[in-house]
Simulated scan of single mutants.
Amino acid sequence: AFLQSTTSNVTNPDPLNERVFSAELGYGFRSGIFTANLNAYYTLWMDKSFVRSTQMSNGDYARINLGGVDARHMGIELDFSLRPTRWMDITGMLSLGNWIWDSNTKGYIYDSQGQPMTAALDGTVASGIMADDHAWLFLKQKGIKVGGSAQTTGAIGMTVRPMKGLRVSADWNAYGNNYADFWLGSGLNGNQTIEVKDPWRIPWGHQLDLSASYRFKIGNIFATIYGNVNNVYNYNYIMDAQSDALQEGIWQNAYAVMYSFGRTYTVRVKINF
């Protein structure tokens, strides 16, 4: 195999401009103590471009440049704010989404230096970009869930002001319907169709955050002290992961798992001159 170490700067001969279609319908309610907004959305992302990767037999990583990809995002969102008394605020939100890849896609394969690869994926450089010997992959991914972001989120929080200058807040956030993003594993050859498996559905996660601030006076100067405790229960949940597109979407086939931070603390002081 002939390996070429210089990076290719050849211009993509047939780029597609990304297009977006979006429609929303909403309703808002306002009163003296309560406000709420309800919104439904439907968005089509068309001709998106992105990159997937696989490992070649020579140990290098290959990049598959995919274009003309469609995705459909739809869902409903609700947020509200309640002030039952002057010293208390209650807020909340809920977002229910359904995001899927809405088309299959074909992509050409390059090594980490940007050189076009032949179908053996052993590091042999093709005669040119999109030439007859330039390797490609066709991904059958229509209907597969979009990974990398929670499609269902919710939150509820309360802020109280029990005395002048003091504010105390508690906020609970939850994340669900989060799916692992996929890569194409290793040991593949080019010029073939890949049937993408349903990705792993990551278990839902949540955390409770507490915060407080107190504003006071030092002589003729105002100061405010802030304190935060994030993830009070020190609960570790999975925020993101990846899985092999060729394997069943179960936790045993997940990797590159990213966990949330544990309990963290911050304290700061602000002085206004």
Rank of each mutant, 00 (worst) to 15 (best):
L3P: 01
R268S: 10
P15V: 03
D89K: 13
Y61T: 13
Q113C: 01
S149H: 07
D240H: 12
E18I: 01
I225V: 14
T264Y: 04
G97W: 07
F21D: 15
F2Y: 10
T54L: 12
E24Q: 12
G176F: 05
F2I: 06
Y110E: 15
S213P: 00
I64Q: 05
Q55S: 14
S5Q: 14
V160H: 00
G154N: 08
G28H: 02
G262K: 01
G97V: 03
L184D: 11
R86L: 13
L66R: 02
I238G: 01
M258L: 12
S22E: 15
G176N: 09
T159G: 03
Y41L: 07
F138P: 00
G123T: 08
V269N: 07
L38A: 05
Q4I: 10
G114W: 08
R167E: 15
T11F: 13
L96C: 03
Y226N: 02
V125A: 14
T35M: 09
D79V: 11
S243R: 08
I64M: 06
K140C: 13
G219Q: 06
S53L: 11
A126I: 04
G123K: 00
G32P: 06
W136P: 02
N178F: 02
T105H: 12
T54H: 01
N37Q: 08
Q113I: 03
Q252I: 13
N272K: 10
S127E: 12
A131Q: 12
T264H: 08
G75M: 12
A135H: 11
Y214A: 07
T118I: 04
K142N: 04
Q141K: 05
I33F: 11
A245V: 07
G185F: 01
A131S: 14
M239L: 09
I64D: 14
F222L: 01
P162T: 04
M258R: 15
E195H: 11
M46I: 08
G75E: 08
D122E: 14
N189R: 11
